[in-house]
């Protein structure tokens, strides 16, 4: 009566060990396997094209308050560290604070483009340009059309 139990238990222990080992591996594998890590950030300054610098001094021009501004910076930091979905979450958070800011929608479009979802990127970019109104300052319009051109150039290969 006790013998089968002991074998059973022994196997169980072995199984536990194996399971523990496997789950441990899975955890380590998961941490390093963040999707999108290593891809170049189109919003980073080292991009191979002349990119309108995004700096604090532009805040008033972008018509963004300091809070969404801070979130855009946070999104950059996440992206550069390879945390793409955290970066998207920061951008969406910025969007909730500034839902009619064409800049934030453009940034989200850029992120989707960098993730390879060019169709979504295109839709979001369209949304961004739709938010340009007659009251948008000429400088922001210029800035955004620059972004738009860039995005179109990125999207072309998929079209």
């Amino acid at each position: 009566m006790s013998k089968p139990l002991s074998v059973f238990s022994f196997r169980l222990v072995a199984l536990w060990l194996l399971a523990l080992l496997l789950s441990g591996c899975a955890t380590f594998g998961g941490a390093g396997g963040q999707q999108g890590a290593g891809k170049t950030n189109p919003w980073a300054s080292q991009a191979p094209y002349e990119w309108p610098p995004y700096q604090q001094s532009d805040a008033s021009d972008l018509a963004l308050g300091p809070a969404p501004q801070a979130l855009l910076a946070e999104a950059d930091a996440h992206y550069e560290a390879g945390r793409v979905s955290a970066s998207a979450a920061s951008l969406e958070r910025a969007l909730r604070l500034a839902p009619r800011s064409p800049v934030v929608w453009y940034r989200l479009a850029g992120l989707r483009a960098s993730q390879g979802d060019l169709a979504a990127a295109n839709r979001l970019a369209e949304k961004a340009s739709s938010l340009v109104t007659t009251e948008t300052s000429p400088r922001i319009r210029q800035w955004l059309s620059w972004l738009d051109d860039w995005l179109i150039s990125q999207l072309r290969p998929a079209a």
Binding site: S2, K3, L5, S6, S9, F10, L12, V13
Partner: peptide
């Protein structure tokens, strides 16, 4: 918890048997 304690169980039971 089960590891270091449950592992002892079969031996203990075997001993009794």
């Amino acid at each position: 918890g089960i590891f270091h304690r449950a592992a002892l169980l079969p031996f203990m039971v075997q001993k009794k048997a």
